[in-house]
Write a protein that binds this DNA or RNA. Structure first.
Lengths: 153, 153
DNA sequence: CTCCCTGCAAAGTGTTTGCATAGTA
DNA sequence: TACTATGCAAACACTTTGCAGGGAG
């Protein structure tokens, strides 16, 4: 699953990931994936990416960002989180993880819970549902939005 | 939190719930909430409710259904689940529970997991995030959509 | 009698799609 | 060269909003 190459580029090259997944390498795709790989654990809306990247590539259409994110999601490089307020968020998905959603700034963060092994359906429910995966979302406040601490932003 | 009355109506009267929450009782509101109370654990889109109830109340506007669901959500009688494919789903929320999402029929079901007590953030994450709630979503196939069993629907 | 809720329709978001062109393999 | 991704803009689905009339308290 790892890309076979060890290029000299500083970050895990987006280009290698694209080729690994059998996707064509275009400037737009490389740009989007590169930016996302630079901040693993951060999540972006399509519009945030579009805004942030137009500075580097003036010819980047919003529709293309949506297309690229859909494609990256399809091959499993990226995960899509349903927008709790408005639009969906996207983040790279290279290792298994779960999520924390800050009710203050409405951002998603990747986390790795402990004690997941004990989690299961009740015996009754186990008869009704065939569970193939579990998603856990913690809710609360991130450090920046803490009610007492230092409420930046 | 329980409505004080024990009326003779078969189901837990929608009217009582509305009054308990300080909401005006209108035919539209009673109709929507009554239908939802008849099938606790089932989830509806605004359109499903609109379609189902127009038969009983020809003058029921789609916009009104949205307004009512927003109001019921606001007072905590109903919960809103982000639409994984398109539109949001709504279900009554009288007792704490978690969810199962069927990847086959794309319906939500209420479930009550066991072993939740052991679930927590990692020590590192605990320093970054103030957790106030946890949402667990099981994914898989419901009985009707089971791959081997009897794949109705 | 007052205020709020409703129906209706228009406006708004966020996202998808169609087509001609440009660019990758 | 063949085929696919892109830019652009129109289309789309879902939801929210504004306004005038009607019903609840």
């Amino acid at each position: 699953m790892q890309p076979g190459s060890r290029t000299a580029t500083p970050e895990l090259s987006a280009e290698v990931w694209l080729r690994t997944k059998g996707l064509r390498v275009t400037p737009q795709r490389r740009l989007v994936l590169d930016r996302m790989l630079q901040q693993i654990g951060r999540h972006w809306t399509a519009d945030e990416l579009h805004e942030a990247l137009r500075a580097q590539l003036s010819e980047l259409a919003r529709g293309t960002v949506y297309n690229i994110l859909a494609e990256l999601t399809r091959v499993g490089l990226v995960e899509e989180l349903p927008g709790r307020e408005g639009s969906a968020s996207y983040g790279v998905h290279l290792t298994p993880h779960h999520h924390f959603y800050c009710d203050g700034c409405r951002r998603w963060f990747d986390v790795t819970p402990v004690g997941l092994g004990a989690l299961a359906l009740s015996p009754d429910d186990r008869a009704r549902f065939d569970v193939q995966a579990v998603a856990v979302v913690f809710h609360g406040r991130c450090a920046e939005c803490a009610p007492h601490g230092a409420p930046h932003r």
